[in-house]
Design a protein around this nucleic acid. Sequence first.
DNA 1: ACGTCGTTGCACAGCAGTGTGCAACACTGG
DNA 2: CCAGTGTTGCACACTGCTGTGCAACGACGT
Lengths: 197, 197
Amino acid sequence: MATESSRARSLNETRDRILGVALDVLGENPDAGMGEIATAAGVVRRTVYGHFPSRLDLIRTLTERAVAEMAAVLTEAAAAEAADVAWARFVARVWPVAHRYRVLVALRRGEFGEAIHSLLGPVDVLLADLVQRGQDGEVFARHLPAGVLSQLAYNAVFTIADSELAGGASGVRAATIASLLVLGVPEARATALSDRS
Amino acid sequence: MATESSRARSLNETRDRILGVALDVLGENPDAGMGEIATAAGVVRRTVYGHFPSRLDLIRTLTERAVAEMAAVLTEAAAAEAADVAWARFVARVWPVAHRYRVLVALRRGEFGEAIHSLLGPVDVLLADLVQRGQDGEVFARHLPAGVLSQLAYNAVFTIADSELAGGASGVRAATIASLLVLGVPEARATALSDRS
DNA sequence: ACGTCGTTGCACAGCAGTGTGCAACACTGG
DNA sequence: CCAGTGTTGCACACTGCTGTGCAACGACGT
């Protein structure tokens, strides 16, 4: 903190740092308060309120960023012909940010659950559509409706991203295989897909 | 509330009702306070404190019950020869209570996470052991270490129990298939196992 | 030097939840 | 009828977080 020679750099510099740090802090404790976030960001609580009028505002901004990133990755990955190939590409692309945004899964329950759920809705729809496409094309299993199955596969990715082996190249591979398996893709094909991402 | 003619029945009657209702209330909102739980149980906040000195006490008791039930079911199911058969039996047996105790998954984060995590530890170990046994016997896949893989399969069961199709016989079947798939069991065998529970 | 802007420090009001104390009440069994 | 027990209603102190107001400070560009 004291080593930081210059104070303010640009308009959005502090704002961005707060957002970034908020993801980390809330990721470890979804109930963390504004004070905790502020301290972690190296600023005072009052400063956070200067950028985000309320706690909900902060979280909403966070969610909007996550939705934008994931939706972009998802639509780009969904361009692939086969649904299983598209899913594998999605996991590979989304992996770098999955761990950062894992808090949103926990944040869907409690307090702001409603707001977050509605913001996250579009992503859920995209996911369900992709899975539905796979089920229609006999690529994915039909033991569950597309809506639930997509949540299951997506949960698998986030659970692995949340575990200790989040870092390292083995994480992406494991997440791809695990999510494809739950989607009903045979192990051999899942393994093959996890290598050509 | 007014229809309840007699007041107190036995020593544990109110206590048990509080515990039961607390699971429901906390299931919908893990941040629910003692007042909310008390009202839902048809008593006053003060009464809850009469049975449980603190909020942590309530939740700990809840967790201990869950651990006891799940551990019993798990050890009984694990008696089966093959690991995949054991898992299928476990899911079938644990299903009736999985939905009730789903809140514990959410409660592991935030505030009492530490306490709950330690209480839930033994169950995690049992689960990991069973999965490890399956991996050693070439029944389960090895794309993930037993510890993570067991959490994945167990999460799948709870996610399905938490979805709309929690009620109905189709839920157990879906949960069994989905969890077996993620464990690496081929779809055909998983489907067969899900019928003979 | 001057005004601007982001930041700081502090004070404050408000709210919600926790946990406690205590007197009053209702029901039960002897 | 009376003592015991569980419940109630209310009061209270305490804590922690939210959100606001405001004066001061420091860096920056002109």
